[in-house]
Design a protein around this nucleic acid. Structure first.
Lengths: 350, 350
DNA sequence: AATTATAACATTAACGTTAAAGCTATAAAA
DNA sequence: TTTTATAGCTTTAACGTTAATGTTATAATT
């Protein structure tokens, strides 16, 4: 039913090859023929069949991107960053959600490979390394986004989580804080670990020990955060709080932290300073507006896409740098302030 | 380089067709052969080439989905709803962001059609109807999500915006409110209009005129909301506010409204009740937790996907209902309360 | 014993496209 | 004039798959 090159060829009494070359502005075709072919293609409503082309040239003009959760604004922004580069060169994106599940992740990637994906972007669920061998065997370029497998040398792009943690600590320390709570995502996620490491690293430079930051590991999504933080805060009934600032793994978690702090009758930033992470679109409208770390996910996506096209077009000789790190940005707003009273460095018991 | 049916056939000294049929468990192949073929396919690392199959059977096993902004949690949830149905039957999704721009929308859809999309889901940017004829001519099923072109008969699925507005009015009226502000998205968007119509419709049933609800048209994204609402509230310097409740087009906007109300030294819900729309993941953690309308976007996505597969498999006789409407849910939280004092029905000047 | 049916394969052609190799008439060079 | 080059086409084969049609040996039926 759809119009093919042959239909155009028959209409003009030329060969199919002539039509094909004319439409692609290749040499060996007269200008008048080229014009005629294009006109007829338009008139008949021709639309090229990329699957057929793929069979010959082995370029599907499609890339796959697998994220753990597209509802996470960090990943949807990254998607847009990738898309912004891809659309310029007519690459189309297949998207899949792994839901942090390595079975689904694997199924999605296999599907994308069956569709001939020219490359794959992956926010790995991190629960299984088998996926790496699948990708390696498939012989298509792949780039890890934001999370990486420790010890595995793969291409990856990330916003520096270490630096983000470092910036947060620097800011809070500068205000006078000396004792902290880190409300973290599960620590098997590399970004959760690295933010912690960056945070502690700055404090060590200032001669504070690792024990001045407590970790509260929470599920990033779901409503458990309020409860967890509340339970933590309430555990010091009456006694002065041993912490004066909370560093959150995400702005989403910061919402929960605000809520918990409010439930305990405390105030941000008077009683507790809060630093978020992500700088999502809500953070500027929180009460008070949230001081946070901007991941620059769009830029991460752009960089990843650019790296992908380098890999795809790599002649083999030109080396492609295996990774890129985007510097995060500290966004100052009103959820942080000097602590009401500087507590002794090692206050309270766990 | 990749393994093909021919490689398996050569390995076993059978024909390519036998391999093809064996892998698909078709008749006319001996059980031992089938077993051998499958085993060899595994051993050699065979992966089917869906593009080649598409050329023969004209099913690409891909669907396109075009949204205005994947960062909008409503659309990312819808995406997941669609995906949940698609993955069961091995359909892969291509995603594109139109950024509310009909040029991009058109380019994306054309691309998807060139890739052989078996169907297209579309949240139309609404700025151009040409896209409809493109879709019609392409001869693939397409379904509008959430927004629809007035007067055009196309398949569409939406959460009932009318009903959502109706529920919001019912709830606020029940608390005693009689004068309202509707903080709306641009009114050329059908859902913005329909929510208003539903809202007013309930009030009319209660014998209130259309003039008891003022409209403040804002851009849904961007940071202008605080400013706009603040300007509105400040325009009544000293005088009592003519409104006691605000109905917001989205939870996102409700964030801005909270912020504006706070800036004016007022409180939610004591001074002003606020109803949001979407019930996104942040709304339960706002201070106070937001009363809102749940769109049930995941269900909208599921329904759309199911309808799509009906359309794709339609034998032509069995009629497919052209649309489906999902009932929204009123989620009661703490941003709404009885007005401090019931104002006369027509208080203040605009 | 001759016919018919069946199981289990193989062969061929096609899907829409592109690359490579041919062909032909005209123009340029020897 | 003959040779060579070139512009502008056509023809052929291939990409990996599947549907339709052929083929053959064996089993069942008459």
């Amino acid at each position: 039913m759809p119009v093919t090159l042959k239909d155009i060829a028959d209409e003009l009494n030329v060969s199919v090859n002539t039509v094909s070359r004319a439409l692609r502005d290749m040499p060996d075709i007269g200008p008048s023929t080229t014009h005629l072919v294009k006109e007829t293609a338009n008139r008949l409503g021709y639309r090229k069949n990329l699957a057929a082309r793929y069979l010959k040239v082995n370029k599907s003009m499609m890339l796959g991107i697998v994220v753990t959760d597209i509802c996470n604004p960090v990943f949807s922004s990254m998607y847009k960053g990738i898309e912004s580069i891809c659309e310029q060169i007519k690459y189309t994106l297949m998207l899949g959600n792994s839901n942090e599940n390595s079975e689904e992740e694997c199924a999605i990637i296999n599907n994308m490979l069956e569709h001939g994906a020219d490359g794959i972007f992956l926010v790995p669920s991190m629960k299984d390394t088998r996926i790496l061998s699948t990708l390696k065997n498939a012989n298509v370029p792949y780039i890890m986004l934001q999370r990486k497998f420790p010890g595995q040398s793969t291409h990856y792009i990330q916003s520096s989580d270490f630096q983000g943690g470092y910036f947060a600590a620097e800011h809070l320390f500068g205000l006078g804080h000396r004792s902290f709570l880190y409300v973290s995502a599960p620590l098997y996620i590399s970004s959760a670990r690295e933010r912690y490491e960056g945070f502690v690293s700055y404090l060590k430079e200032r001669h504070l020990g690792e024990d001045c930051v407590r970790i509260l590991e929470c599920d990033n999504m779901g409503s458990g955060i309020n409860q967890n933080v509340k339970k933590y805060l309430e555990s010091f009934q009456g006694k002065p709080l041993p912490i004066t600032a909370i560093f959150c793994f995400s702005d989403y978690m910061a919402h929960g932290v605000y809520s918990a702090i409010n439930d305990c009758g405390l105030r941000v930033p008077e009683d507790i300073s809060v630093v978020g992470y992500d700088n999502n679109e809500y953070s500027s409208m929180m009460l008070p507006p949230l001081t946070t770390i901007d991941i620059r996910p769009f830029e991460v996506g752009e960089r990843a896409a650019r790296m992908m096209f380098h890999l795809i077009n790599a002649s083999g000789e030109e080396p492609v740098s295996p990774d890129a790190v985007i510097a995060p940005l500290l966004v100052l707003r009103h959820s942080t302030a000097a602590p009401r009273s500087i507590l002794p460095d090692k206050a309270g018991s766990p």
